[in-house]
Design a protein around this nucleic acid. Structure first.
Lengths: 242, 242
DNA sequence: TAGTGGTCTAGACCACGAG
DNA sequence: TCGTGGTCTAGACCACTAA
């Protein structure tokens, strides 16, 4: 099981791998309380400090969360996480407000070359394509196109276009067991197409901020490709570099 | 000095503060080797593990770097850091290439309201304004306007507009003792002005990605306001969310 | 070979949360 | 009051670097 031989990787790294495997195989579920540090140390035959170091690193990666006096939990996307971790659009005062979203369409189609490439699917695979518009204070601000592999997300279309929740990552986690842990974004400035313009109440050709995001699970498997086009008159994308 | 009373902050936090103070006061300089963990532990009257925890957190914040067998050093902006940490423009294949930069002008002026606000200066303070254009493979890609407080940066204009280095953060550190540790960026899509257009070889009105960045020292003092307007045809801004 | 950071242990006490 | 994570200690041995 665990090896502490000379050339081997450190014990705490092996324990991290083991914990990640527990998550991947569903032995530990989002939001669940995991055994205490002392108990894990006994089970694994190592000291508390070693388990502690493994957990500390997973907490830093937002995989686990610690609560003093209560225990250690598997991180989940309830409420705050999706909003404050993955949503970077703020208003002029820097306030993060989650916009309401209205689904325009939800249908199945064949993936384009770009889509299959970024989602690591076979060319021409079947995907679900969702289009929705998001508003702040009644003003349409973002037009989003969301691409998901039909397997396993096909049933999203059946659910009905109108009642998709605002926070999709929470849905992916709860309904499909896909927890989003990281994302890779590409940002560009583009000119509003006629379609963009009509949905966002701007003139065609208006500069829009395009955010191209691939959302990934813990083991770096791409789950969702989302292209958002944003009006950046009274809002902007905020990024802090540490 | 250090206090381990009941209600006080943890020892390792106090030690972190102490180390940060050493940096602020210039007792430790960028690139310098600091005393070993054991020696610091003796001097501070704590165990090695406590010093170690303080150093670990500062390493995670990119304030210090450890090298096994050699010691612990104060981080600096040599070569890689500025480029790979603060520069997010990549080409279509995701490659990070540092563009050459050509200074167009360097002059002193009064800060605008926005500039004095974001740099936390008194309204109408004297600032240095540098304009430069950056090229990839001969193609002009970014037009940058850099605003710095005249105190202490006035001499930059005297140096001569033409021979400003590509990596300014390195210069701020070496010449002015201002080390950039973090930055806050705001991204928007804007239409190219006539001036933008002529410098970037595009048509007026072309959508450009505007990056508005305030660079901060370790104690969150704003040092530089930089506004970059980028052509995002063959390049884009890349951000990874963990 | 000496000194550094990296890993690991065993055990103490504190702060917090729940019953 | 009990069990949890949070802090701190003292000491062992390993891996790496430089002289």
């Amino acid at each position: 099981m665990l090896s502490n031989a000379k050339g081997s990787t450190p014990l705490y790294s092996q324990i991290k791998e083991l914990f990640v495997a527990n998550l991947r195989e569903g032995k530990w579920s989002p939001g669940e309380l995991i055994p205490s540090e002392m108990q894990l140390a006994r089970e694994l035959g190592v000291s508390q400090g070693t388990v502690r170091k493994a957990i500390t690193e997973l907490v830093e990666n937002n995989v686990l969360t610690r609560k003093q006096g209560r225990g250690t939990f598997v991180a989940n996307h309830d409420s705050e996480r999706s909003l404050f971790h993955f949503f970077h659009i703020v208003d002029s005062e820097g306030r993060k407000v989650m916009p309401e979203s209205k689904t325009l369409s939800c249908r199945r189609k064949r993936a384009s070359r770009k889509e299959s490439s970024r989602l690591q699917l076979a060319p021409g695979s079947s995907v679900v394509s969702i289009e929705r518009v998001r508003r702040f204070d009644g003003q349409p601000i973002m037009l989003e196109t969301i691409i998901l592999p039909s397997e396993p997300f096909a049933q999203l279309c059946q659910v009905g276009a109108s009642n998709l929740p605002n926070m999709l990552y929470e849905l992916y986690e709860k309904q499909f067991g896909k927890t989003i842990h990281s994302a890779e974004e590409q940002l560009r400035a583009v000119a509003a197409s006629d379609h963009d313009a009509s949905q966002l109440a701007v003139l065609p050709g208006t500069p829009l901020l395009e955010i191209d995001r691939v959302a990934l699970t813990l083991d770096k498997t791409p789950v969702e490709l989302r292209t958002s086009r944003c009006v950046t008159g009274e809002h902007h994308y905020q990024n802090t570099i540490f």
